[in-house]
């Protein structure tokens, strides 16, 4: 067991190293000059432009040779620093991400978990009731095949633009200053609702279809037929099928929980919701290497952690993996 986890950890560290290196390199392959982008916000004389440009380039260490930048990047990273954001200059990247991550988590965590729970329940029921299967299944297929931005636009149009039930954009009303008041919380909640519903509905369709298909597969497995030949009631057969069908779903859940910190790019953009996904767009638009790196690093760590959790949880819930470990076959 210990050897198994030691080997897993080694794999994770290697993956982390490679991913971080790519994370550092990819933004630098983007065409354009981030400092020029930053300075274009100011009205500058050509002479002061040149001075500012060289001083900013020095400040961000962009004049150094690449290998140097790379080493500096690792050194700063190990000290917990991701540099200064160009887009939100002069805020450090960690602060910018911290503000956005709160919105993203508040949005995606409930959307993912609730759609997982509801989708699995409904999918499992659909697998055994013809009528429900005939209605839920096509509905779920439509939902899961719906592009987020399309559903988001539809909801925004109907419920915000036309009916004025919900606000159309932002994380909270611009006329409010963030305080711990009922008015502010209410504003947060109403702004949160539409992006949440978008993510929930699309996710729900996928989970429901997955669970339904898995249950039907399990109900046709040999052990299910054997139980039937022993006269076991349907309740028991279904209980077993449900428990076994949950395992692949659980993997899916953990993986999507891992990518949560990456935010929901298109949905957040449609609703102008100030989460990580929206921040990605801002970082790209202003060629903010450091912010983009920081966000990607966040996603890398999230995915790796989630994978690790899946490994551990699987060992706990599925005897087949556990026994594989004891025999040292894995």
């Amino acid at each position: 067991m210990r050897r198994y986890f030691a080997r897993k950890l080694l794999t994770y560290f290697l993956t982390f190293f490679v991913a971080v290196t790519l994370d550092w390199g990819i933004p630098r392959l983007m065409p354009g000059d981030p400092i020029a982008g930053l300075l274009s916000k100011f009205q500058l004389q050509p002479s002061s432009y040149a001075v500012l440009h060289s001083s900013y380039t020095r400040a961000f260490n962009l004049g150094e040779p690449l290998w140097r930048q790379y080493l500096d990047f690792w050194r700063a990273l190990l000290h917990g620093s991701l540099g200064t954001s160009i887009y939100a200059y002069p805020d450090p990247v960690t602060t910018v991400i911290r503000h956005a991550v709160v919105f993203t988590l508040a949005l995606l965590l409930p959307a993912t978990v609730l759609s997982y729970l509801a989708g699995n329940k409904v999918g499992a029921i659909a697998a055994r009731r013809k009528l429900l299967d005939d209605t839920v299944l096509p509905f779920s297929y439509v939902l899961t095949a719906t592009p987020y931005q399309w559903l988001a636009l539809l909801l925004a149009f109907v419920l915000a633009s036309v009916a004025h039930v919900f606000p159309i954009s932002g994380g909270f009303s611009y006329s409010l200053v963030p305080t711990l008041s009922w008015a502010f919380l209410w504003s947060l909640l109403t702004h949160w609702f539409l992006p949440f519903v978008t993510l929930f509905l699309v996710g729900f369709g996928g989970w429901a279809i997955g669970m339904r298909n898995l249950i039907i597969y399990e109900l046709d497995a040999d052990y299910a037929h054997f139980l039937e030949s022993l006269g076991a009631p349907r309740r028991l057969v279904r209980k077993y099928a449900y428990k076994n069908a949950r395992l692949p779903q659980l993997t899916g859940l953990a993986l999507s929980l891992g990518t949560i910190v990456g935010g929901a790019v298109v949905t957040e953009i449609v609703f102008n919701y100030p989460g990580i996904g929206w921040l990605v767009l801002q970082a790209i638009n202003s060629e903010d290497f450091f912010l983009l790196q920081g966000i990607f690093l966040f996603i890398i760590v999230g995915v790796l952690l989630a994978n690790f959790v899946v490994d551990v949880v699987y060992v706990l819930v599925d005897p087949r993996t556990r026994i594989g470990l004891q025999e040292g076959t894995r």
Binding site: Y223, F226, L227, S229, L230
Partner: peptide, 19 residues
Amino acid sequence: RFKKVSLVPQYSMSALNPT
């Protein structure tokens, strides 16, 4: 079933719930 008539299936290797 089970009490009066019983079946040893062709697929005994996979007849038991793996989990």
